[in-house]
Design a binder for these strands. Sequence first.
DNA 1: ATGATAGGAATCGTATATCATTTCATACAT
DNA 2: ATGTATGAAATGATATACGATTCCTATCAT
Lengths: 247, 247
Amino acid sequence: MASTVVANTVITNTVMPTLSKSQLAYRSVKSRISDGTFSPGYRLVLGRIAAELGVSVVPVREAIRMLEAEGLVTFERNVGAQVAMLDPDEYRTTMQTLSLVEGYATASSAPFMTAGDIARARTINGRMADTLKHFDPVAFTRLNLDFHSVLFEHCQNEHILDLVRRGWDRLRALRESTFSFVPGRAQGSVDEHDGLLRLIERGAEPLEIELAARGHRLATLDAFLAHEAARPSRGDHHLTTSIQEKP
Amino acid sequence: MASTVVANTVITNTVMPTLSKSQLAYRSVKSRISDGTFSPGYRLVLGRIAAELGVSVVPVREAIRMLEAEGLVTFERNVGAQVAMLDPDEYRTTMQTLSLVEGYATASSAPFMTAGDIARARTINGRMADTLKHFDPVAFTRLNLDFHSVLFEHCQNEHILDLVRRGWDRLRALRESTFSFVPGRAQGSVDEHDGLLRLIERGAEPLEIELAARGHRLATLDAFLAHEAARPSRGDHHLTTSIQEKP
DNA sequence: ATGATAGGAATCGTATATCATTTCATACAT
DNA sequence: ATGTATGAAATGATATACGATTCCTATCAT
C-alpha cells in the first residue's frame, strides 16, 4: 500500500481510517483545554498550532470553528481565537444551564438504571467522602463527574445528553484545583448524592428526581457565589488568573 | 481608498466591516435551510455553493462546520454535508429538548415581562385564533413562534436563550406547511397560550409557569405522535419526502 | 514628557492548486 | 443474468501562497 500521506500514527492506520487533520486538531486543542494546558484567555494562534501538529492552518481553522460553536473558544474577526473566558456571569449561566439539562437527563435516565449502576454510583460517592479527609479537590472534582455520569448516561435523548456533556466540558476548562471548589460545600454535596440515589432506588417520580438533581447543582452554584462574594479581594472581573503569554 | 477586494455590498461597506466570506456563506446557507430552499436531505456540495456565492470553498467549509455544530447539517468524512434529516425520533428529541429549555426560559423571562409584552402576546394569540378559520398552517406556525418569542425573550441566561433559538431553527428547517401541523391541535394550543398568559399575569411561581410551558410543547409533540401513528401509510422512516437531486 | 503618526511584524482571510477518496458506470468473467 | 473488477469523474481534504487587517513600536513634533 502506498503511503504518500504523512499518517498520524501507524497503529491506528491499520484499523481506523486515520482521523482527518481537522479532527486531529480538534481533539488536540480540546484536550489541551480540558487538561488546563490552554487555560482561559490563552491565545490560540492558528499558525503555531498548525506547526505543532505538523499540518497546515486550514484544518486548524475548522477545528477552532467547531470549538467556537461549542462555546469553548471565542473568536474575533481579524484578531484570532482564545480559550473562552469564564467570568462570574458566564460561570453562573453555565451552571444554571447544566442544572436544567442535567436534572432532566438524570430524571429520564433513572428508570433505566440497574442495581449495578446504583451500586457503582454509591462506591464512587464513598470514595468522594474519603477524599474529603485528605483534601484533594482535583480528585473530588473528577469523582464528582464520574458519579453524575453514572446517573445521567442512560438518558435516551441524545441532544440533551450532548448538552450535559458540553456543560461539563466547559466547566472542566477551568483549572479544577484552584477554582470551583468551595471547602464547606463538599460534605453537603456527598450527602445530597446519597439522597439522590435513594430517590432513584425507590422509583420516585421523574419530576421529583429532576428537581432534586437540579437543586443539587444550583446549591453548588449558590455556595460558590456566596464564597466568592465573601472575598472580594481579587475576583473582580475574572475568575481565572491565567496569564496571557506572548508568542 | 483602494478597493482591491470584491466587497459584498457597497452600502454596508461604509459603516460595517463587510462581513467575512465565512459569515456570508453561513448566513446564506442557514437562511436557505430556514426558508426551505434547502430541504432536509439536500446535499450541500461545497464547490457549488462556493461558486454561487462567488467565493472559494474554504470559507464555505467553515460555514458548514459551524452549521454542523448547531445540528442543522450533518457531515460525513470524505462524503460531504447535507441538511440534517429529521426522522421521527429526531423530531421527538428536538421537541423534548425545546420543551425543557423553552419552559425554563419562559419561566425565568416572566418576571421581566411588561404589561405591553403581555398585551402584544395576546394580540398575536388572537390573530392565531383568526387563522384557524382560514386554515393557514404557515401563518399559524409563524405566529406561534412570534407568540413564544415574546414569552421567552426576556430570559437573562444567554446560553439557554441560545438553545431555545437553535431548537426553533431546527424545527423551522422542515417545511412548516406540510408538516408538524396537526389539525385538531391548533385550538387547544391557542387555549393553552391564554392559560400561560394568565399564569404570567398573576405572577405565578416560576416552577408552575415552567411546567405549564413545558407541558404545552409536549402536548404538541404528543398530538403529532398520535397523529403520525394513526396513519402509518408513508411515514415509515422519514418525515420528509424531499428528493435528492443530482448536480 | 506626551501624544500622534508611520512603519513593520504578526496574524488572520481567502484563493488557488493538488492529492485522496468516494461513487458511479461500464465492461468483463463466470 | 449476476456479480465483480476497473477506471473515470466528482468531490472532499489539505497545502501553499498572497493579500488584508490588526497591533505594536519606534520616531517625531509639540
